[in-house]
C-alpha cells in the first residue's frame, strides 16, 4: 500500500516536472503553455477522481501467507453464458507486521471444483460462528503438468502453484498479564 501511494505521488511529480520543463524551455506561445497548465491541472483532478471507483473490488493478488477469513462468496461456472466462475474471499492478514492489520481485503481466485468444495465448508463453518483461517502453500502439480519445453530440455522441474489450506482458528488463550507471554487455551 505504501508503494502504491508512492507510485502515484511519483506520477504527479513527473507530470509537474515535465510541464515545468515545457513552460521554461519550449518554443510554444504563451497561450499554448497556459493551455498545457490548464490541461495538466484537469488531469490531476481526473486522476484524483479516478482512483476511488477502482477501490473495493477484489484483487487478483495472491492472498497473504496466513489470514483470517471473514467472508466467502462463490460464483459457479455457467456454460450458457461462458462464465468461468470464481471464488471470492474477504480476509484479514494475520501477519502482525502487515501494512494494515485488522483491515479486510477482498480477493478473487479462479474457480476449481476442489477449491469450491473447500470454500463451501469454510462458509458453512463461518455461519456456525467457527472462525476460519487460511494458509498459503505451494502445490506440487506433478509431472503431468510439466511444460513441453522443460521435457525437451531433459528437465522435469515442477512449476509450483499457490494453493490455500483452510482450518478452524485456534482458540485464543488467556490475555497475558503485563510483561508475560500469552498462555495457550487449555485443551478440553
Amino acid at each position: 500500500m505504501i508503494l502504491s501511494s508512492g507510485g502515484l505521488n511519483t506520477m504527479y511529480t513527473v507530470l509537474a516536472a515535465v510541464l515545468l520543463g515545457l513552460n521554461l524551455f519550449s518554443r510554444w506561445s504563451w497561450r499554448t503553455k497556459m493551455m498545457a497548465v490548464v490541461t495538466v491541472s484537469i488531469s490531476y483532478i481526473v486522476m484524483y477522481l479516478s482512483f476511488p471507483p477502482l477501490l473495493g473490488w477484489p484483487s487478483k493478488d495472491a492472498m497473504p501467507k496466513r489470514f483470517s477469513i471473514i467472508g466467502v462468496y462463490m460464483r459457479e461456472p455457467d456454460k450458457l453464458s461462458g462464465e468461468e466462475g470464481n471464488v471470492f474471499f474477504w480476509v484479514v492478514d494475520r501477519d502482525p507486521h502487515a501494512a494494515q492489520p485488522n483491515v479486510p481485503r477482498g480477493y478473487i481466485v479462479p474457480f476449481t471444483p476442489e477449491l469450491h468444495a473447500r470454500a463451501k465448508q469454510v462458509g458453512a463453518k463461518l455461519k456456525k460462528n467457527i472462525p476460519q483461517v487460511g494458509e498459503q502453500e505451494e502445490a506440487d502439480l506433478g509431472t503431468h503438468n510439466v511444460s513441453r519445453e522443460q521435457k525437451e530440455g531433459g528437465q522435469k522441474s515442477i512449476k509450483p502453484k499457490i494453493d490455500y489450506v483452510f482450518s478452524d482458528a485456534a482458540p485464543e488463550g488467556l490475555p497475558p498479564k503485563t510483561g508475560e507471554e500469552p498462555t495457550a487455551a487449555p485443551s478440553r
Binding site: 500500500m1 508503494l3 502504491s4 501511494s5 508512492g6 507510485g7 502515484l8 511519483t10 506520477m11 513527473v14 507530470l15 482512483f51 476511488p52 471507483p53 477502482l54 477501490l55 473495493g56 473490488w57 477484489p58 484483487s59 487478483k60 493478488d61 494494515q100 483491515v103 479486510p104 481485503r105 477482498g106 480477493y107
Partner: peptide, 20 residues
C-alpha cells in the same frame, strides 16, 4: 518509468475497502 510505476501501483490498491 511513470507508466510502469502507475501500472504496478494500481494492483496493490485493489481489494481494500472504499469510501465510495
Amino acid at each position: 518509468v511513470f507508466y510502469w510505476t502507475t501500472a504496478h501501483s494500481i494492483g496493490p490498491l485493489m481489494g481494500w475497502a472504499t469510501t465510495h
